[in-house]
Design a binder for these strands. Sequence first.
DNA 1: GTCGAACCTTTCGA
DNA 2: ATCGAAAGGTTCG
Length: 408
Amino acid sequence: MGAVEWQKIPSSLSELCINTTLRCGQSFRWRKNDAGVWSMALHNRILSLHQDPEHLYYRATFPAAQPALPTPPASHAPSVAAGAEEDDTPALVQHYLNLAPNLTELYKQWSAADANFAKKAPKFTGVRILRQDAWEALVGFICSSNNNIARISQMMHKLCVHYGPLLGHLDGEPYHDFPEPAALAQEGVEANLRSLGFGYRARYLYETACMVVEKPDGWLDGLRNPEAPVLGQKAEDGGEWQASGREGYRKAHEELLALQGVGPKVADCVCLMGLGWGEAVPVDTHVWQIAQRDYKFGKGKHSSLTKATYDAVGDKFRSLWGKEAGWAHSVLFTADLRAFSERLVAKVEKKEEDVEVKKEDGEEPVLEDIKKEEKVVEKRIKREDEDGEKDVLAVEGTVRRSKRARKG
DNA sequence: GTCGAACCTTTCGA
DNA sequence: ATCGAAAGGTTCG
């Protein structure tokens, strides 16, 4: 493995908070280790992240002996073992984390346009829409139907372990890149996924993989917002704005609907998080609750979440928040997640106690000391994420414990 | 266009 | 602890 030193770039927690962004239901593959470092296999390397109030730190770990070329004369292929020849990790980080937009400015705009956003957003700053791989987003959100984030994460992990190429190990854990469509379009995949606990989504994944494989090359990325091209491509104009969404967005949404297991909500998730269409507003159970509670839906004409109501909710948010409505929506969605619910309660003296109780419950005692350190770090950077660790560790815990001594 | 039921399994919360 | 409900929905009739 060719590990590279940590790099750092200036970044405030208002511009990006990875502890929120990486576990708010956008990507389901990030794992946090005991030292508080987030890692994920991405584009043929293991990308690791952590941050303090002033900086974002990143590091890539490349697989050993991964010759870009069929290993010509090994004569002077020196320590360049991997990736060192033009390390594109800085560009990848910039691209994946979507660091270009000024998030503070966007929050200001959304707050000015919407009192409810202004009220909710201050406790959920730094939520950034990631630019994920479109295929991964498609698979992840097909799995998300009628499901919970912990299980979706577990399923994505299994998918990588069983069908993705192994890149290497970190903290003793294997990291696999995300499988290509062809890997999931093979005979027997459906049955195997079912046995792995995917339930009825096994068939959706297999059939969608087959359909994608049959499409012309580059079909999925062809549905991208030209303003948000894949890494290395030049940005172009995204088309004319309208409250129902730009033409390219509508086209992408419509095409995605033809895939198995893809309805309006999943299609919007892929549009927003995989294809760069900022106006895509996925309306799920959370957003529907929000729309009823805070935006006067749920009565009369729009009393139930029909297709027409679905579109109306999206239009409402698009006309309210504009071109990046899906982004604003994600902030409110995050605020609605149980995993973050503690931020909504007022800071009272009882809180410390509650946290302690939660921590002891269901966690390995061995981790106690480490976790207290972690807590200190979290406090130092002035975030309130003690609550979050519990959830994240729970996800990893099930994976790990299933292989080791679970009974204690 | 709308409605209801069925769908797999895990996690959550009372 | 245990058990029903809910979980970032979609499909089918």
